[in-house]
Design a protein around this nucleic acid. Structure first.
Lengths: 126, 126
DNA sequence: TGAACATATTCTCATATGAGCATATGATTG
DNA sequence: CAATCATATGCTCATATGAGAATATGTTCA
């Protein structure tokens, strides 16, 4: 089976950087025509339309017809699952992390360190 | 260009449900052998190893060799970007949404600038 | 040394992209 | 109606899956 479709859920939909950029443009609750997004991001119109379609299918944006243009609006609540999910992990990077972890483990394993991490490249997030 | 590699960034890595399940198993800061995850999720071992590799490349887990087994551990801070990103949208699904939106719209007409964190940082625990 | 155990890697295959480009659909106006 | 503006859809192509099965690498122990 190939990778799940981008329209499967919000997690897949927002994995695409361009789509996050589009959502950023829609931030503020304002309605925005496709053209606005195109101009704001400098992307080709078809690309924007396609990305908006994915976001629409997942429900994170809604659309309204207004004359010859379609006004897209952010529907943020659909992002809540992402928030809830990641929030579960929040405590592990907030201060006292080592403390919490130490207590949880309760012991220290003597280990031979050998960071053979395959690729030590830097990944940038959006 | 095809879809970005799953190892491109955290957003892509966590788009896969199985990978989120694996992270859930690693929750708690404890070190877990691959076999533990396999047993916990009932997935074939190669599948787990492959998913762990992706998570490792993105940095959301770290690994340590201990005898013949490899102990994986959650490295939650890598998830912070996801948290920060989604948090920007949080205010739009929390109560008073319409109120907040109305105020925002009233203030800024026209430009959508991207932005900076919400000045009011609330820290409530779950 | 060899068997058993733990995990990683390789290979194939069906499938879903995202980019780029062309074109279709729809609405507005002269 | 025809021209124009605003969007959406269709097409090709290179590429990266994730699942499944088989196999390789590495470690411990008898």
């Amino acid at each position: 089976m190939p990778r799940a479709a981008t329209t499967t859920d919000v997690f897949n939909a927002i994995a695409e950087p361009r789509r996050r950029e589009i959502l950023a443009v829609l931030l503020g609750g304002q309605e925005h025509a496709v053209g606005d997004v195109v101009r704001a991001l400098g992307l080709p119109q078809p690309a924007v339309s396609k990305h908006l379609r994915v976001l629409l299918e997942v429900g994170v944006v809604s659309v309204t017809r207004h004359g010859r243009q379609r006004l897209y609006q952010l529907n943020a609540e659909v992002l809540k699952p992402v928030h809830d999910w990641v929030k579960t992990y929040e405590q592990y990077w907030t201060r006292q992390v080592s403390h919490i972890k130490a207590r949880a483990e309760g012991k220290m394993l003597g280990r031979t360190d050998r960071s053979q991490s395959t690729t030590t490249e830097e990944k940038k997030t959006c």
